[in-house]
Simulated scan of single mutants.
Amino acid sequence: MPNAAARPSFLLVHGAWHRSTCWADLQDALAADGRESHTVDLPGSGPQGTPTAGVFDDAEAIAARLREIEGPVVVVGHSYGGIPVTEAAAGHAHVAHLVYLAAYMPAEGESLGSLHGRDASKGVDLEGLQPPVFEDPRASLYGDLPDDVAERALGRLVEQSRRSFQEPVTRAAWRTVPSTYVICEDDRALRPAMQTKMSANATHVERIGTGHSPFLAAPAELAALLGRIADTAVPGRHA
């Protein structure tokens, strides 16, 4: 087991309609294991979200945060967060590993919309913010959470820029940085079948038996899994 000083830290990147506060329970669990973590707020997510912000604005926020962190880093992207992580982490020599947590894992030229078969050239509105698109966000995002925890999480949801769903990435960091895809087996927001398809791009695949938000449903279990991933990460292992 590597000592604490040698361990990579984590940069936790939230998904659509969320802010970095969603990671608080996981950060506590990581800290209990002596692991350092960092977060970032993406400009495409409200309440201070910018209606014109997109993938590249979010990627620059991630890149700027990476420049502030010393030592090797494991970057964890959740859901939509996998899109700007894929763009941002390319070329950062101290990124030791990427973790796609029930996350979109695009290749160059792909966007969240295109991964769902949507053509942005056909009259898609790229301007403005929108609330969660799920008919029942409670069931889709937090179906395995106790009512009180789910209600708090629902109360923290914000609007998301439409542009962030349609801009394609130009770089795919997972081509040069080792990666792990964590499939959430009871996910009702991003179906496990689609996760499994995208996970073919990853170096390794893990599974966790939760819904879409394991950082709330099982923070200790997720922290342990991330710890194991980080302990096998090889800083500087780039193609």
Rank of each mutant, 00 (worst) to 15 (best):
R19K: 09
D119Q: 07
A193W: 06
Y142S: 02
G227P: 10
A102Y: 00
R171K: 14
V133C: 02
V13D: 01
A230H: 07
E110V: 02
R162T: 08
V177P: 03
A24M: 07
G209L: 04
S37F: 01
G128M: 10
S20A: 15
V99C: 09
A173C: 06
A202D: 10
A230W: 06
T50P: 00
G44A: 15
V133Y: 05
L129M: 15
D187R: 01
R138E: 08
E206I: 07
P72Y: 13
L112E: 11
V177L: 01
V73G: 05
A103G: 09
H14Y: 10
L26R: 11
V13S: 03
S37T: 05
P219C: 07
A64G: 14
A93V: 10
S111D: 06
S121K: 11
I69P: 05
H204Q: 14
P214W: 07
L11M: 07
S121C: 02
E206D: 14
E167C: 10
D25H: 13
H94Q: 15
A220F: 01
V95A: 02
V75W: 03
I83R: 02
V76H: 09
Q27D: 02
A139T: 14
I229G: 07
V133S: 13
L216S: 07
Q195D: 07
G155E: 06
T21S: 15
V95F: 01
A173F: 06
A5S: 12
S179Q: 11
L66W: 08
L222T: 09
F134P: 00
E127T: 14
T50D: 15
P168T: 13
L30K: 00
T232H: 11
H92C: 07
A189R: 01
C22T: 15
D28G: 10
R7I: 00
S114R: 12
T203I: 02
H204S: 13
H116L: 14
A5D: 10
D136A: 03
A202K: 09
R237T: 09
E159K: 13
G15V: 04
L145K: 07
V182Q: 04
Q48D: 14
R175K: 11
K197W: 12
A139Q: 13
G34Y: 14
G209E: 12
V85M: 14
S140I: 02
L126V: 12
L11K: 02
A153I: 08
P235I: 12
V13Y: 04
S213I: 00
G117F: 08
G209S: 13
P8M: 01
F165G: 04
A153R: 12
A31H: 11
R163A: 13
R138T: 02
S121F: 05
L225S: 05
G143P: 03
Y104L: 12
Q130I: 13
F215Y: 15
R35W: 05
A189K: 01
Q48Y: 06
T39N: 09
T196G: 04
A5N: 05
S199G: 12
L145A: 08
Y104A: 11
V13A: 02
P84Q: 03
R67A: 15
